[in-house]
Amino acid sequence: MSSTPISNTENIESNNIHNPQTAKVAWRYKIPWLKFGLRSLSLLIFFGGWQFLCAIKFNFLFNFVFVPSPMEVLTASIEFLSKNASLHFQASIIRVLAGFGLAAVVGIILGILIGWFDIIEDLIFIPLEILRPIPAVAWIPLAILMLPNSEAGMIFITFIGAFFPILISTIRGVEGADVLLIRVGQCLGAGQWHVFKDIVIPGAMPNIASGLVIGMGNSWFCLVTAEILAGRYGIGYITWESYVTSNYPPIVMGMLAIGLLGAFSTLVLDRALRLLMPWRVMRKKTA
């Protein structure tokens, strides 16, 4: 009897799988720099269109008469950056990271507990569901009353923004554990702990990761709300303060700064989470 291992020619097929999705995007990469060019063009159209609408004082449904043009925003930004901009950036970034970090820790731990133990779900899930739809701005009075200082209040508001998406995604991820894979573990002798650690948690990780990415965006989303409480520093504070004093260009500058910081931190977080899940990164490449 021959016991030569079966040849591995079968795996060649995996390289030749027709995939409509890759077929669709492939043409874009045939011309070098086309993708980069298209993306630069999207920015040009966005800012150019905005400048144009301001220049002609567009006023139909939307009124652009009082909207600062990109050039005015740029001037305001240069002026802002030449002063003590870093203090404002630093204050906001620390608040968002603190709120988000707390939300990640509490949201993931609570989410795992609620998803895994029915009794904990019964004990705390309904109150959390009632708190979930409450917008961050509605928490401001309570944040002032409950927390020792405005700094803690601001962190609390950014926490609220990130907490619920992380919590819900974690619960879904844990509850959605694949029964087939749990059975696989049981047949290999895995007890509760190994099923939980080696099957349920890794299976929930993609869900938890998307909760974190959404949560990061939401934390920035709540920044202006949070910094209504601020006395001196913060990008959100600048935005709100400029509105109160009718100084319009810095409002748009603040909005854009929050957008940029939010997009950038989400991108960094997304990349970092992918490194934690090498099996998913590779799937994306081959699929």
């Binding site: 291992p5 079966i6 591995n8 079968e10 795996n11 590779m282």
Partner: peptide
């Protein structure tokens, strides 16, 4: 792994393997 001809693929993730593998 050697016995079933998978030694070469020991570091591959499942989605990189064919159905038979």
């Amino acid at each position: 792994l050697n016995r079933v001809g998978l030694y070469k693929h020991r570091h591959a993730f499942p989605h990189q393997l064919s159905g038979g593998m």
